Simulated assay, not measured.
Amino acid sequence: MNKTIETILNHRSIRSFTDERLTKEEVRTLVKSAQAASTSSYVQAYSIIGVTDQKKKSKLAELAGHQPYVENNGHLFVFCADLKRHDDMAKKAGKDHQQALENTEAFLISVIDASLAAQNVSIAAESMGLGICYIGGLRNHLAEVSDLLETPHFVLPLFGLVVGHPANESSKKERLPMELIYHENTYQQDETHVDRYLKEYDERISAYYEERTNGERKDTWSEQMIRGFSQPKRAYLSEFVKEKGFNRT
């Protein structure tokens, strides 16, 4: 096993950072790592906003659900789906590409591109001894986030990524068994197979929580998912995404 794989397999979310800020060179290295990610058809349909203004970080922490690590970290990156460059280029060339840019495929390309870039940043940061945590809570109030970051039409903030020097190490959560994630040739639908591995996984996750909280928590992964998907989340997003020019057709 090489060091890259060791870094990937050792991932855990960090939610407590020292006061040390990332240097400009570290930020540059991480952004260049993002740009080295694969991109669909060379489209590069994303942008990254680095937030260093402390007042803006404080407001984003509030909008994300009062998460203190959004405010206190080494650097905050916000990854955006971005088709504005492509829209601007088309208009300057006298072309009307609006229908193509507004369709679902273009939306998926931009979201996937941004996600691949962000994961490159995560791996690069962890290889540098830094810690990271993704911030999906920005989508709680995306209109306010968009206003704060002044993102124009065809630029959609998707999630944040906090990076910094860990104040302490968090524990690593076990992922689903490979037998439930990896399928060969066809999708595995045998309920006996699924139930077996899911039951074993739930037992291990319950034990993890029980040990970590001294018995105060012992819910399973299945219980978390059933609870989490009991009702739609962020139902406003469909309309807001369309308002920003994405996924209209």
Rank of each mutant, 00 (worst) to 15 (best):
M1T: 03
N2H: 04
S13T: 14
R15Q: 02
T18G: 14
T18D: 10
E20A: 11
R21A: 06
L22Q: 04
K24D: 14
E25S: 09
E25H: 03
E26K: 09
R28P: 08
T29F: 00
A34Y: 00
Q35Y: 03
A37Y: 00
S38M: 10
S41K: 15
S41I: 15
V43S: 14
A45F: 01
Y46P: 03
I48K: 05
K55R: 08
K57V: 03
K57P: 02
K59P: 13
H66L: 15
Y69D: 02
N73A: 04
H75D: 08
C80E: 08
C80D: 08
L83Y: 00
R85S: 00
H86G: 00
A90I: 03
G94T: 09
H97Q: 10
A100T: 03
L101N: 05
T104Q: 12
T104Y: 08
E105P: 11
A106S: 08
F107V: 07
I109D: 08
S110E: 09
D113Q: 13
D113H: 09
S115M: 12
A117C: 11
A118P: 01
S127V: 01
G129E: 00
I132A: 03
Y134Q: 11
A143N: 05
V145L: 12
S146H: 13
D147E: 02
L149V: 01
L149Y: 06
L149M: 04
E150N: 07
P152T: 03
H153N: 08
V162Y: 14
V162L: 14
V163R: 00
G164W: 07
G164L: 11
S170K: 07
S170H: 06
S170P: 09
K173I: 14
K173S: 10
E174W: 06
P177G: 09
P177A: 07
M178V: 03
I181A: 09
Y182D: 08
Q188Y: 07
Q188N: 15
D190W: 05
H193M: 06
H193V: 03
D195P: 07
R196S: 15
Y201I: 08
Y201N: 09
E203V: 11
E203W: 05
E203Q: 13
S206P: 10
A207N: 11
E211D: 05
N214H: 14
G215K: 02
E216S: 14
E216M: 11
G228F: 10
K233S: 01
L237K: 09
L237Q: 10
S238G: 15
S238K: 14
E243D: 08
K244E: 12
G245S: 12
G245Q: 13
